[in-house]
Write a protein that binds this DNA or RNA. Structure first.
Length: 820
DNA sequence: AGGGACAGAGTTTTT
DNA sequence: CTCTGTCCCT
């Protein structure tokens, strides 16, 4: 952490900012220092945009053009927000405190919590993630019997989301829809009902967070003015990924004040003394200054409503806007950039932009074609090991794929090869049933109006309360005009048997007790550990944990561990937010994606989708599954602009690499138990041949006698890190070349003999003892000699030098090996 | 009410 | 293949 130089008022100005401007190229310099109402920074991949953005903020603060509280910086992910805050603090220290640096969603939640009571919500509203809305929509689809008209929960959810991103609601949609179509009519009904249910539950879904904030600003201009007065400098990162609602939000915030007569709470704090504007009065009511940063070549979220026109028509939207182009790339070698440029050049409707680098040509891109996804994964694992032996830390390597399901094969091989890895944003911790249950308990306390949450925990753990009872409670609540939650507090009046009455009374008691802890009635300050304590209490006294512990299902053991972890998360939260309430905690959980808190633990390879990869960079990058129907994904083919978006996604993937880029694919891929033949992606052909060094090209694999040429290839390849870099000896499957077959047939014949799955059952070698010098036999790699054994217990790792397959690391417990 | 067996469906990206 | 939903039996 660098100390910020002290700023003496009056000495502000360019001369006080030398360190902020040092080392910038002319375009970056202008991006940092330009002052005006609107600035668009077109920042190519790796062009130092985060640096520019943070220095621009630091510069505004250092020169006293703005107070921290007047700055609103919006990023796409919480991780990016955290990084930006850290870097600004690194530049100017504590002076950065009080800025809003957050995602669209967090910023809107902050605003909505403060203003919710203006329009029929309370400040403890729940945030529904997509799983929650799906559950609600599913129920409504059933209730309205919408499935009879071909509406599925998934389709309804995505349509509603799209409409909300366009700031449309059920009513406005109905006006322009073809209401003579019964399917349309019922959709509108479901949409309207969905919105009613949200309101009744005192809840917002993800899209509402943005949309309702816009609505709030439009319906209550004086509320909007408060924020317009406050935020004088608004900066938006990844502008190409904004959707219409987000665009409208920015527009609302940068509008001139609606009523200039209102008192200005910030006018008295003395900042005007340093305000360089010649006419302070004007500056006071004029719109905030807006800076947006983006790159239309990296727009990859059109599928969820991102509108590329927001950036391409920025100059029209904000007349007089200055545009700065950053084209020098400081990240990658020229070979990688040339490939990226060549690929993205095939998108026709883009503004020409050519990234260049002065880092030299660098290594060639390495290509590899495996027979199966596991073969491909083995190549990645081997290459990772080779790079690691050559001195590259695991944390500097990343493996990308198009779809989450592709991570399986990689994981299996990585485990077997003892490669330390971490999956970023994979199966979500917060989507696990037990965590959702625990969350529902918390929501039931924090926001009793949220009927979904209360219903969810009603019979978890099993209390003998079934469908019939649940419906009866709901009907009772409706008749009495009370909430579902309140109905639980009068079990005697519900008219159930004594057993069920007791169960309900018990649940009610637990919730009441937890409420007393977590939401103390008086204004007293709750203890910092209140959330964690309340959560533990809920899980213990509800019997949830006991039920899991009593279960014989081995999975339930893991669930208990997950819940322990969740309690730890709550304690962690308390440590970081001593004054944090249960509502703060729930907000955090709802808005913090797993990808965000899974910080790079040094010493592990990162696995993630190409979408998750945006904004990150690594020394070595492996883009896997470079096949037709995967990237570009087959679903994209039908969508307008789909293939182009896929190309941008691929472009994002390859531009993450600093020094080494690997592109790999598999000739066959097993999905849903079916083995399909894959074709190389069209994007591969868009890269000049000279840039790729194929360890094994699609031709090698596809042509007659593929096995043999592969074996030759592997031996010939040598390459970085020595002979182990190939993927094992070609004859490991015991398949002889098949002369005389045409180029398509041999593959399918050979295919059934390739393991498309690693042995499904978990192998357990138990206490197999190995020491240096032992000879072993491996199912795939043949015979070899143990060099050393490291690690302990279940994590013992044998470092083996195979006679033909080179060096490997093997997790002794699970590797398919035997001592000989 | 709850558990087990079976059938069917869905498989893109995520704040 | 794997997850969900449904049906049927206890």
């Amino acid at each position: 952490m660098t100390e910020a130089p002290l700023i003496v008022p009056g000495t502000a100005g360019p001369q006080g900012q030398d360190d902020l401007l040092a080392g910038l190229n002319p375009q970056q310099l202008e991006a940092v220092t330009y002052r005006g109402p609107a600035l668009l920074i077109v920042a190519g991949a790796g062009s130092g945009k985060t640096s520019v953005l943070t220095r621009r903020i630091a510069s505004l603060l250092r020169s006293r053009e703005a107070w921290p509280s007047q700055i609103l910086a919006i990023t796409f992910t919480n991780k990016a927000a955290g990084e930006m805050r850290e870097r600004v603090e690194g530049l100017i220290g504590d002076a950065a405190r009080g800025m809003w640096i957050s995602t669209f969603h967090s910023a809107c939640v902050r605003i909505l919590r403060r203003e919710a009571q203006q329009f029929g919500f309370t400040k403890s509203f729940t945030i529904y993630d997509s799983g929650d809305s799906r559950a609600l929509i599913k129920r409504l689809v059933k209730e309205h019997e919408a499935d009879a008209f071909g509406l599925t929960p998934a389709s309804v959810q995505s349509r509603i989301s799209k409409l909300k991103n366009e700031l449309s609601d059920a009513e406005s949609y109905a006006r322009q829809a073809n209401m003579s179509d019964p399917a349309e009519r019922i959709f509108v009904e479901v949409f309207a009902d969905y919105q009613r249910q949200l309101q009744k539950a005192n809840a917002f879904d993800f899209d509402d967070l943005i949309g309702q904030t816009v609505y709030l600003f439009r319906a209550f201009p004086e509320v909007a003015d408060t924020y317009r007065r406050r935020f004088r400098h608004i900066l938006v990162d990844e502008y190409q990924d904004t959707n219409h609602a987000q665009y409208a939000l920015i527009h609302e915030l940068t509008r001139p004040l609606a009523s200039s007569s209102a008192p200005d709470p910030y006018a008295s704090n003395g900042m005007m003394i340093f305000e360089p504007e010649p006419e302070p009065k004007n500056a006071d009511t004029a719109g905030a200054s807006l800076t947006v940063v983006g790159d239309s070549d990296q727009s990859i979220y059109a599928f969820r409503g991102a509108d590329i026109r927001n950036i391409s028509e920025f100059e029209r939207d904000f007349p007089g806007a200055r545009v700065v182009l950053l084209e020098q790339n400081y990240r990658s070698t020229q070979n990688i950039l040339s490939a990226a440029n060549a690929v993205i050049g095939n998108n026709f409707d883009r503004k020409e932009k050519k990234l260049w680098s002065d880092r030299g040509e660098g290594d060639k891109i390495i290509g590899f074609t495996g027979y199966s996804q596991h073969d491909e994964a083995q190549f990645v694992a081997d290459e990772v090991e080779a790079l690691h032996r050559a001195g590259m830390p695991y944390s500097e390597m990343a493996v990308f794929y198009r779809t989450n399901s592709q991570s399986r094969a990689l994981e299996e091989i990585f485990i077997r090869s003892a490669v330390p890895y971490k999956i970023m944003g994979g199966t979500k911790f917060y989507e696990r049933a037990e965590i959702k249950d625990a969350l529902a308990y918390l929501v039931a306390v924090a926001n009793p109006a949220d009927e979904m949450a209360v219903r969810r925990i009603l019979n978890k753990p099993r209390r003998g309360i079934g469908d019939v009872t649940e419906t009866a409670i709901a009907r009772f609540a409706e008749e009495q005009g009370i909430t579902f939650r309140d109905a639980l507090s009068m079990p005697a009046q519900l008219g159930f048997g004594p057993k069920i009455q007791a169960a309900i009374a018990q649940l009610d008691a637990v919730l009441t007790e937890a409420t007393a802890i977590m939401l103390p009635p008086t204004g007293e300050v709750p203890a910092p550990t209140t959330v964690a304590d309340g959560l533990s209490l809920l899980l213990a006294k509800s019997g949830y944990l006991d039920a899991l512990r009593a279960s014989r299902d081995p999975q339930d053991e893991a669930r208990v561990e997950n819940l322990d972890e969740f309690v730890a998360v709550a304690r962690d939260f308390a440590r970081n937010n001593p004054e944090g309430t249960i509502v703060d905690f729930l907000t955090d959980v709802a808005l913090v994606a797993d990808a965000d808190d899974l910080d790079d633990e040094s010493g592990t390879v990162s696995l993630m989708t190409m979408h998750t990869a945006k904004g990150l960079e690594y020394d070595a990058v492996f883009v896997t599954g470079v096949e037709e129907d995967l990237i570009p994904h087959r679903i994209s083919a039908g969508e307008p602009g789909g293939p182009q978006e896929e190309r941008r996604l691929f472009y994002v993937g390859i531009t993450r690499a600093r020094k080494r880029l690997h592109l790999s694919l598999a000739m066959t891929r097993a999905q849903f138990g079916e083995v399909t033949v894959a074709m190389p992606s069209r994007f591969l052909q868009e890269i000049p041949v000279a840039l790729i060094d194929w360890r094994q090209s699609p031709g090698d694999v596809n042509s007659r006698g593929g096995m043999q040429s592969r074996a030759l290839n592997a031996r010939r390849a040598g390459g970085f890190g020595g002979s182990g870099s190939g993927s094992g000896s070609g004859d490991r499957f015991g398949v002889k070349p098949l002369p005389g077959r045409d180029s398509l047939k041999p593959l399918s014949t050979a295919m059934d003999r390739f393991p498309n799955r690693v042995t499904a059952k978990v192998r357990d070698n138990g206490d197999l003892e190995l020491t240096a010098g032992d000879r072993i036999r491996h199912v795939d790699f043949g015979e070899g000699r143990v060099d050393t054994v490291t690690g302990e217990g279940a994590k013992r790792i044998a470092h083996v030098r195979f006679d033909t397959a080179g060096q490997k690391k093997l997790l002794i417990k699970v590797a398919p090996i035997e001592k000989i």
